[in-house]
Simulated scan of single mutants.
Amino acid sequence: MAEWLGLGSDHHAFALDRARVLRLPRWPGGGEALRREARLLAWLTSWLGCAALPEVLHLGTASPLVPEGFSVARRVPGRSGLGVAVTDPVALGGELGRWLADLHALNPHESGLTVDLDPSGHDWRDAALDDLEAAAEVGVLPGADAWAARVRDIPDLRKVMPVPIHGDFAAEHVSLDGQGRLSGVLDWSDAALGDPARDLAGLIHWGDAALLAAARVAYPAAGQSCGAVWERAAWYALCRALGDLAFGLTGGVAGGQEAYLRAGRRALDGLRAWWTNAPMAP
């Protein structure tokens, strides 16, 4: 019998057993997204060997019960980094920084990735302001006006050079082994050719200063105009943190409501320190 793992923005996830995960799209068009993700994972696996990626074992066709089809993938070892205490943040930060550097340096030829850029930043801004309003209405976001001002202060996104990105890189999609080391990266449905700062935002969002410092040393951002890429990353991290608060309010993940609320608050605490201390590039 399948065990429900949770509800994401795009899929329902079920554990078929300890080794396999079933994913069912939530929205029209989700079946094609699953097939596109399967092709991408096959391509990525040939290039990224430092952490396990989900291996798609089977793609199910559409039927009356599953109109968008489904996928069955090999379960990535370890446990989600969401809400897990990091035992060695320096080591993990270095691993994450190097892993993102390898991903962002890939030649996207034959990847099937398409460009996903928002030079105006308006889509991110508007979604973040909606999330902010939802969180403020129920009292889980003190200082909402100040955060809203930060959201509206969109960094310059007009000259971004797109690279292969995960697109939703955050603790819940990073799998850690029993020693707290990187063991895999999940959920590639938002992968694209996009702004590397979107992935780097996940490092800031983690809310661990030592982890972030180690990742910044490991990630060679100079080729991306170092100060600018981290400025953008902080803004994306703010948008993501507000999204966590709003998502946590829905209780969309089994047992995960509080975990997302804590993650959002922890990210905001880290961002408050980030902007207060105005960190310089390593």
Rank of each mutant, 00 (worst) to 15 (best):
A73V: 05
W27N: 07
E258D: 14
S9F: 05
A15K: 05
P220L: 08
A135K: 05
A105I: 11
R39Q: 13
G227R: 11
P279G: 07
L186Q: 07
H166A: 11
L203M: 06
A254D: 15
A134N: 11
A148S: 12
T87A: 14
Q224A: 13
I165N: 01
W4P: 13
S189I: 07
D145W: 09
W206K: 00
R23V: 02
D126K: 08
E32D: 14
V84R: 13
T87V: 14
A281I: 11
G69F: 05
G31C: 02
G60F: 10
A170W: 11
R265L: 14
S9A: 13
W4A: 12
L22V: 00
R181C: 00
C239I: 03
A209C: 04
L141K: 06
R232T: 06
V229M: 00
L141H: 10
S46H: 13
A218F: 12
E68D: 04
V151G: 10
D199K: 08
A171H: 07
A214I: 07
E3N: 07
R79I: 09
R181A: 08
W235A: 07
R74E: 06
L117N: 03
I154T: 12
G49T: 08
A91E: 11
G6E: 06
H12S: 05
G167A: 04
G69N: 02
D195P: 06
A233L: 04
L92E: 12
A146H: 11
D88P: 06
G167D: 01
L129N: 14
L261N: 00
A170Y: 13
W47C: 06
V90L: 13
L268H: 08
L48Q: 03
G243S: 07
A221C: 09
W206D: 02
R198A: 12
R266G: 08
L117I: 04
G121S: 03
D195V: 03
G143Y: 07
G69L: 08
A197P: 01
I154L: 09
A73Q: 12
G112D: 10
D145H: 11
W43H: 10
V217M: 12
P108F: 00
A214R: 09
L200T: 03
W27V: 01
L96Q: 03
L22P: 00
E55P: 09
Y219S: 10
H58S: 06
G194W: 01
G227F: 01
N277E: 15
A135C: 08
G83C: 02
A215E: 02
G121E: 00
W43Y: 08
T87R: 15
R262S: 14
D10K: 07
A254W: 15
S80I: 00
G167Y: 04
P67S: 09
D126R: 10
L132R: 04
G31S: 08
R75P: 09
P196L: 05
R20G: 11
P28Y: 02
R198V: 14
A136I: 01
P196S: 03
W47E: 09
S175K: 09
A73N: 10
W43E: 05
L82R: 03
A273E: 15
A105H: 12
A136V: 03
